[in-house]
Design a protein around this nucleic acid. Structure first.
Length: 761
RNA sequence: GCCCGGAUGGCGGAAUCGGCAGACGCGGAGGCCUCAAAAGCCUUUACUCGAAAGGGUGUGUGGGUUCAAGUCCCACUCCGGGCACCA
């Protein structure tokens, strides 16, 4: 794509960098007892050289990498800026701990089945004090701005689901024993209030102890203990997760008053209510909520319908629209009107307020690992949390560390690093020894690319304004709600912090999600260690052969399976390039002197090929583009090697145009041939992308199909502008058509000249 | 359970609008070249009836719309992905 766009004479910025911090390097270093930097830099070298050999076009002058102290300085500066703005904070919270990675993870890094996105270990819950970024502040903007992005709908949907905005009402359920106190709940269905037959609090709810009566203490205690011992994932996302999961709960012994019916309803504690969403307590409406229904059935609680169910509805919870029943002043209203009435009522009677809740949680950025960007904070007994002064950044990890398998970050036990003095009072203090999530590093690198040369600022606003947003961002779907969400948040925050004035609030205007290479169904990735090294193919079919295969293998958005057949396809691509080379050497070519109709046909094929390949490139159909080049080549080659032969200038034009079409796909061999053919011209890659000669691409004859009762009976060559009458006459005069018509009278003729005529009998 | 995407020869995959299904490649078969092989070249290759000419069938399944459906509509099956106790 870069090569193609460049040949269209566009200014193309194609940068490269390395997200060089992270666990793979650290784990490798632990195994070998060496320093992750050694691994990382060796790997970077290998990768760079492999990419260069592949012929990837990058502006290597702009290369950046996250463990570069210059880069780290700004990563840390941003952390402190976020802290100053109140967007970074330290809090104790239940967090996801991965026993395989020996660190906490962000919610986004935990898969739906409760395992770690990277190591596959089951994540456990721990209560720890950690650093967070207040990404939830931007929840609405992150959601709304998705609408205008040219991204795959799938990715946008994933982000929308992840943010999980829901509008509802928060209100009070007064305690029956003491109506001046209340249990606050959140609901999206205030209209179903008359159907509230019980309430539920989460096991973590602060009021739980107060609500629990002596008689129920033991039962409640048992449930709370069990909920605590299980990870959140066992609780919410076990293998049978979802609304069908078994509900476990216990009666607290207390009652609250339903503000609609003024009836006493029991308060339960149950693990299906989450402590960290909404108010951690709900009003339960079993008739209109699947989960409440299951719980009510299990615990023998009453179920009162408040919305009439459709006629064909048998049983169970019904959450659709309908007319309200058993609902006092709401009776007869539809769901939408009833919601409004009920909300107004709750506002008057139960301190009800409209409330928006999000599934999205703040971004946990602390990592108990060594190979990451240190969090630039000092803890002082007197001054508390103290940011490291900007002129002392970057805080660098020491090199004299021991990487062992203890699971402890070497920073935590490194006295010299850990023990420092407070920047404010000068008294002894300790450094933060956690590092930042590597997604913080990758959340702003694209800004640095616009101007990576200055050490004095993270990026030049003039340059970022010039290049940003990224016109075409390409990545795997696996980043749909990790990197792509974090980077969007970062950009918005950096703008609001005044760090990136004039920047577009969305970093990636167009997103294309590439497919992945799979082996035995598993994604090929560095973490799985099942990669296929390209080097081997550089030797056999060359980088160009491998490139051609890569494009040819299938649509770029889809995954490619590596099978026994794959090697053979790669060889086939290599063979094509060999054949192409031989034609350019005029091997087995016969020439004739004066151009004739056969030459015209060749020229037509070539020019149509130019048009088709251009179109394919515009529409990401690289596999078809390769097929088209092969196809055109076959036509040219066949003519050139026929006895009749080809006229010299026809072949020259064909080869030159094919070389240009091939330049972005197989840049090495095409450039070599070009140089040999045109020693005095500028290189192939500086040639302008061709435009097909319209006179040659318009068709002079077209194949018209003739159908009888929809079945094809003949194919006729006709003029493209053949009239309807002529088309029909031709069709009816055809021998094969006449045969299938037989004696039957013609009922009707449908014709779309010059494509087809259909005769109905 | 809900929401997306997909299903086309032995295989990877083509087919902007409803109008020639299977482009291109891989693999297979036969042949040429060769003492032989490799490489290369040529022919052939959806299935099926037929000696051939020619016919029939065919894009996951079942219906429908249409002169005409891989393409549009309805129902379903299977595969892939996402979400899934968020009130």
């Amino acid at each position: 794509m870069v090569r193609y766009q460049t040949m269209l004479d566009k200014a193309v910025l194609s940068p490269i960098g390395f997200d060089s911090f992270g666990l793979p390097a650290e784990n490798a270093a632990i195994k070998a007892g060496s320093h992750p930097r050694l691994f990382t830099e060796a790997r970077m070298k290998e990768l760079s050289s492999s990419l260069r050999r592949l012929g990837a076009v990058y502006d290597w002058r702009r290369e950046v990498f996250s463990h570069d102290p210059v880069y780290m300085r700004w990563s840390q500066t941003f952390f402190l800026a976020l802290l100053k703005a109140g967007l970074a904070y330290r809090a104790e919270a239940p967090v996801n701990w991965c026993p395989g990675c020996l660190t906490v993870l962000a919610n986004e890094q935990v898969l739906a089945d409760g395992t770690c996105e990277r190591s596959g270990d089951l994540v456990i819950r721990k209560d720890l004090e950690q650093w967070f970024f207040r990404i939830t502040t931007y929840a609405d903007e992150l959601l709304e701005d998705l609408d205008d992005l040219d991204w795959p709908e799938r990715v946008k949907t994933m982000q929308r689901n992840w943010i999980g905005r829901s509008e509802g009402v928060e209100f009070d359920l007064p305690l029956a024993s003491n109506p001046s106190r209340a249990l606050r709940v959140f609901t999206t269905r205030p209209d179903t209030g008359f159907g509230v037959t019980y309430a539920v609090v989460a096991p973590e709810h602060p009021l739980l102890v107060e609500l629990t009566t002596e008689a129920q203490r033991e039962q409640v205690h048992e449930l709370v203990e069990r909920a605590k011992s299980e990870s959140e994932l066992e609780r919410t996302a076990s293998s049978e997760s979802g609304p069908g999961l078994e509900k476990r709960g216990a009666f607290t012994g207390s009652f609250v008053l339903n503000p609609f019916t003024k009836q006493k309803v029991p308060v339960y504690v149950a693990d299906y209510v989450l402590g960290n969403y909404g108010t951690g307590a709900i009003m339960a409406v079993p008739a209109e909520d699947e989960r409440d229904f299951a719980f009510a059935k299990a615990y023998g609680l009453p179920i009162v319908r408040t919305v009439a169910t459709p006629e064909d509805f048998d049983d169970g919870p019904y959450s659709g629209d309908g007319v309200h029943i058993n609902s006092g002043f709401l009776d007869g209203l539809g769901v939408v009107e009833a919601m409004k009435e009920a909300s107004d009522y709750l506002a008057r009677e139960a301190n009800g307020v409209a409330k928006v809740n999000y599934r999205l949680r703040d971004w946990l950025v602390s990592r108990q690992r060594f190979w990451g960007c240190p969090i630039p904070i000092v803890y002082c007994e007197k001054d508390g949390i103290v940011p490291v002064p900007l002129d002392q950044l970057p805080v660098l990890a020491p090199d004299d560390v021991v990487m062992d398998e203890s699971g402890q970050s070497p920073l935590a036990t490194h006295g010299e690093f850990r023990n420092t003095t407070c920047p404010l009072c000068g008294e002894p203090a300790v450094r933060e020894t956690d590092t930042m999530d590597t997604f913080t590093d990758s959340s702003w690198y694209f800004l640095r690319f616009a101007d990576p040369f200055t050490p004095d600022q993270p990026f030049d606003p003039v340059q970022t304004a010039k290049w940003m947003p990224v016109d075409q961002y390409i990545g795997g779907v696996e980043h749909a709600i990790l990197h792509l969400l974090y980077a969007r948040f970062y950009v918005k925050a950096l703008i609001d912090l005044g760090i990136a004035p004039g920047l577009s609030r969305e970093p990636f205007a167009h997103l294309f999600t590439q497919g992945m290479l799979r082996i035995d169904g598993a994604k090929m990735s560095k973490s799985k260690g099942n990669q296929i090294a390209p080097e081997k193919y550089y030797e056999t079919v060359g980088a160009d052969g491998l490139r051609l295969f890569h494009l040819f293998a299938g649509p770029p958005a889809e995954d490619v399976d590596w099978t026994e057949q794959t090697e053979e396809i790669i060889e086939g691509c290599g063979r094509f390039l060999d054949r192409f080379y031989r034609l350019c050497e005029f091997a087995d070519v016969n020439f004739h002197d004066v151009a004739d109709d056969t030459d015209l046909e060749v020229r037509r094929a070539v020019h149509r090929g130019v048009a088709t390949v251009t179109d394919c490139f515009e529409r990401w159909m690289y596999n078809i583009a390769v097929a088209e080049v092969m196809s055109v080549f076959n036509a040219v080659s066949k003519q050139a090697r026929s006895e009749h032969g080809i006229e010299r200038s026809t072949l020259d034009e064909a080869i030159d145009l094919l070389l240009i079409l091939l330049a972005p796909m197989a840049p090495h061999v095409s450039a070599e041939i070009w140089e040999r053919r045109h020693p005095d011209e500028t290189s192939l890659h500086h040639q302008r992308w061709p435009v097909a000669d319209r006179a040659l691409t318009v068709t002079d004859r077209v194949t018209m199909i003739v159908q009888v009762n929809g079945k094809i009976r003949a194919r006729l060559e006709v003029e493209p502008d053949v009239s309807e009458q002529d088309a029909q006459d031709l069709a009816l005069a055809d021998e094969a058509v006449m045969r299938s018509l037989g004696q039957s009278p013609i009922k009707r003729v449908v014709s779309k000249p010059p494509r087809m005529v259909n005769i109905i009998i």
